[in-house]
Design a binder for these strands. Structure first.
Lengths: 342, 342
DNA sequence: CGGCGCTATCGAAACGTTTCGACTGGAACA
DNA sequence: TGTTCCAGTCGAAACGTTTCGATAGCGCCG
């Protein structure tokens, strides 16, 4: 079966009595082809079941019509948001009739540049972007097309989609303040994810500190992985800080928190309130239903791919910079328990 | 910058004073090249920063060195296992120095065949396989290389990696039986995922029924999505069946169950035991810690890609059929509460 | 010392597209 | 009636590899 030489445009051309170039033009529309001829060609293609050979196209035209998403892969720690972003990117990519290549993200830029320079992809999407990111510097310096899920400190000329973590944290803290909480903890992602300079971590912390100051609140900041052991740390903290009645959690850091609270016999939301900054698809799985600020991960993936592809197809297009916000959905946050103030 | 004509083997050949074909052979090793010449070529390549052009390679050699994973995409319902599987496949793919293309899974086979016939990928991985799956039939009929995450009814000549859901369900039910439970419910995935004929669903149900019979247990079978509304159904069931003290859950169906139990004031595990058949990465996020049977999703993805690529590189290799089992990890399952038997 | 079999190399022909320049025949214009 | 223009088509030259057949040089055997 498979060893039958596959059909080429030459076959289609012969079968419909035109030149190969005419077949090509009929397919691409880059030059006019009479309705009658196009019809004949189309019919021949369907009859014979022709599919243009992609590598040949790519070789000649210098465009692969593919983009590559550099994906942070980790065997054990689940980066759920990244996965949802990937789904979104996949949707957009296939809508634009592009292919999506997924590559393993590395810290250094050489693999990324290789993907571009070998002609495997026309552009790349980067995730887990740091405030200062050498991958970005390199791509920018070389003039390669790319877009970011996330953003750097300096985003001059760069296309990105990011979630406004600063706004989210501010909103969360204000919400808790208004409920009456006076001591709040921020569970931020550990540097094992994205590194020390990881944008969301840095920005969340800054926004947290400034909100505390503004509202004259007591607050603590915990860096927190999701591995089982990490929950001990949270537990210790809660024991040490009995006045702390609420938390803002980023991504899946809600998990060790809920585990620790349960082991301390503190109920959510009666004894402790949580605002989780997290994608809705994950929040839906959590019991009790948490108050959340929805991080629209799917949309971010969609847009990240879209703004990249648009720029690929239109040289003139200026970079898009999108900063998304998520709604606060109040579910199980409550005023703090009345304490015996004696 | 980017408009500088990129380097080709011709440049390398000139620069090191050999023929283009020699450069190619030095790179591929398909014919002997003297150590000295190879050295010179290598040096030239590094000096100039040469990267072979992938589409050209693919065009001439008829191999893209890419595989495509057909990924079931859904905006709202999170198919977490699929994502973990993808990660695993990515790891294996990059280890073998292949590229991973991700495409949106469709019910009909034409898109899959297109990916192969346009030369974008050398083989494909299919997920969410049904007992009778027309995609599989088509690929097999056409003699295309592929592997399955999952399996069909008839797997003659097919490479697959599957999880042994039958064993897992049997193990789970026996575990609960031994703890003393006498009425158990199986929360199976709704047909919105994978369709009516979805392998894991069908096999789990069959194994459940046979375990019930074997142990003379009362049992119920619920098809259960993860959307918020679905939890009502679970709640209704629990109210209707007060003697039911334990559940076996597949994938994320634990979520509506935990929510319903909480709203009924029934504690896990004191009042109700759960055995979740689920990937450990997800189980780690759940409070209370559930007794699980670990579905090794990452490993499945790894192996699925590996057995496909191995067959691609070695025509003689017979298909691999792997059926994985997961360990039972007892965490929060308990004997049923003593009921007033009056 | 003629011939054989290696190893290492070369040149040229693919692979299946896209794209460029050139060429038609007829419509539109003066 | 001649010129200009345009839609539609053709042929051929790329694109950057891989691969095939040929050959040069060399050691070795008989």
């Amino acid at each position: 079966m498979r060893r039958t030489r596959s059909l080429t445009m030459v076959d289609i051309a012969k079968h419909s009595g035109v030149a190969v170039s005419t077949v090509s033009y009929a397919l691409s529309g880059k030059r006019p082809v009479s309705a009658e001829t196009r019809e004949r060609i189309q019919q021949a293609m369907e009859e014979l079941g022709f599919r243009p050979h992609e590598p040949a196209r790519a070789l000649r035209s210098r465009f692969s019509r593919a983009i590559s998403l550099f994906f942070p892969t980790a065997r054990d720690e689940l980066q759920i948001e990244s996965h949802i972003i990937l789904s979104g990117a996949l949707e957009a990519t296939s809508e634009f009739d592009y292919s999506l290549l997924v590559s393993t993200a590395t810290h250094d830029p050489s693999g990324i540049v290789a993907t571009l320079e070998t002609g495997r992809a026309d552009g790349v999407i980067l995730m887990e972007v740091r405030m200062a990111d050498e991958r970005v510097d390199k791509l920018r310096a070389d003039g390669h097309p790319f877009s970011l899920i996330g953003r750097c400190e300096d985003n001059e000329g760069i296309s990105y989609v990011d979630f406004d973590f600063e706004d989210a944290v501010r909103t969360a803290v204000h919400h808790l303040y208004e409920l009456g909480h006076r001591h709040v903890v921020l569970l931020n992602r550990a540097p094992s994810i994205g590194g020390v300079d990881y944008g969301p971590t840095v920005r969340s912390q800054a926004a947290f500190q400034s909100a505390l100051k503004e509202l004259s609140l007591a607050g603590d900041h915990l860096l927190c992985g999701t591995s089982g052991a990490q929950y001990i740390e949270v537990l210790r903290f809660l024991e040490r800080a009995p006045t702390c009645t609420a938390a803002v959690t980023l991504s899946v850091t809600y998990a060790p928190l809920l585990a620790a609270l349960r082991d301390l016999g503190r109920r959510v939301p009666e004894d402790f309130s949580v605002v989780a900054i997290i994608a809705s698809q994950i929040a839906d799985l959590v019991t009790p239903p948490l108050t959340t600020i929805d991080m629209p991960a799917y949309e971010m993936g969609r847009l990240g791919a879209e703004i990249l592809i648009r720029r690929l197809t239109d040289d003139e297009l200026p970079p898009s910079q999108l900063l998304l916000r998520g709604p606060l959905q109040v579910r199980s946050s409550r005023p703090p328990p009345r304490r015996s103030r004696s």
